[in-house]
Amino acid sequence: SLDFWANRLEAKGIQFARGSRFDNATILVKDFHNLNIELVEKDWGKANTYAVDDITPETAIQGFAGAVLYSHRPDHTVELFDQVFGWHKVGEDDQYIRLQAPGERKEWLDIRKTADSFGKMAIGTVHHIAFEVADEEALNYWLEVAQQRGYHTSDIKNRDYFKSLYFRERGGILIELATAGPGFTWNETFEELGSQLFYPAKHEAIIDQIKANLTPLDF
């Protein structure tokens, strides 16, 4: 399906570059904020069934493959995922180390071995990377683990739809761990999703100001 996506991007006038990493063919494209987005060929993963325009279930994007991390200290970043989170190294070349998640879902992280400088907060910058945990009990477990290992953590944040905590690993990457629930249907039905604007109660005093600066959505 990469050929399909290459043709679709070309037809819409979007520049892209073909490549590969660890024998997985890729298409790299930048969005209008200059953010790197990559389509990755995989022979496993959750089967998708959606179809829209000329996209068929056979060519549809199957899900989230993983991410490329640009670390200030790559060895420390590898240490966190390998020794703390239990991800396993499944590949290494001159440029990248590939770690794969434990369990059945098999997402991967490619950590670039060349040290990078810290990024700046701006449009087109990825602020953090988030990982799902089962529930608040699991979140408290990881909070204790992170603190015992000397990471500076946030407290547990209530985001209404989930709870989360943050810490910056020693390679400089901001990590979020977030619970799977209660999810986006705790205050509206599945059919109603997206029809109203919801916001945390703590922002009640400024919600009118926020609404005034939102760009209207036109579907």
Rank of each mutant, 00 (worst) to 15 (best):
D3W: 00
W87I: 09
A122E: 15
G181K: 05
G124E: 07
L214W: 06
A47Q: 13
A60C: 13
S20L: 11
S154D: 01
T26H: 11
Y199K: 04
V52A: 03
L99Y: 04
A205H: 10
L139P: 12
G124H: 10
D160K: 02
E41K: 05
G103N: 10
D110W: 09
D43C: 02
T56I: 08
N7F: 00
N36P: 03
N158I: 07
K120G: 01
I206K: 15
W142H: 04
G103D: 12
D3K: 05
F198K: 12
E144L: 10
Q148R: 13
L165P: 09
F184T: 15
D82T: 15
T185S: 07
F162P: 03
S164V: 01
A130C: 09
F162M: 09
F32P: 15
R18D: 07
L214E: 11
A47E: 13
A17R: 08
L2S: 00
G66S: 06
Q15E: 14
Q196C: 10
A201P: 01
H128L: 08
N140W: 08
N140A: 08
E79G: 01
F32K: 11
E188G: 03
K42A: 14
I111D: 12
D116H: 11
E58F: 01
L165H: 03
F16Y: 08
E204Y: 00
Y141S: 03
I55R: 01
T153M: 10
A134R: 13
T56N: 08
L193A: 03
R159K: 10
D218N: 07
D110F: 06
S1C: 02
G66D: 08
L99Q: 08
P57W: 01
R112M: 15
E169Q: 03
A11P: 04
D93W: 03
A212I: 07
A17C: 09
T49N: 07
R18L: 13
I123M: 10
A67D: 15
N24H: 12
W108I: 15
Y50Q: 14
E92K: 05
T26E: 14
S164Q: 04
N7L: 06
K42R: 15
E38K: 06
F198Q: 12
G103A: 07
T49S: 12
G19K: 05
G45D: 00
N158R: 06
V133K: 01
I129H: 05
D3N: 09
T77A: 10
V84H: 11
R73Y: 02
F16W: 04
Q147F: 06
K163N: 09
G66V: 06
S20F: 06
T125W: 09
F81R: 12
T77Y: 04
K106F: 03
K202N: 11
Q209K: 12
H33R: 09
N7K: 04
H203C: 11
D208F: 07
N213D: 13
T49E: 14
Y199S: 04
W44A: 05
H128A: 01
S164I: 00
Q100F: 01
G63M: 10
F219D: 13
A101S: 09
E104S: 04
N48M: 08
E79I: 00
H76K: 11
L69K: 14
N24W: 05
A180T: 05
N24K: 13
D135W: 07
A51F: 00
G194W: 05
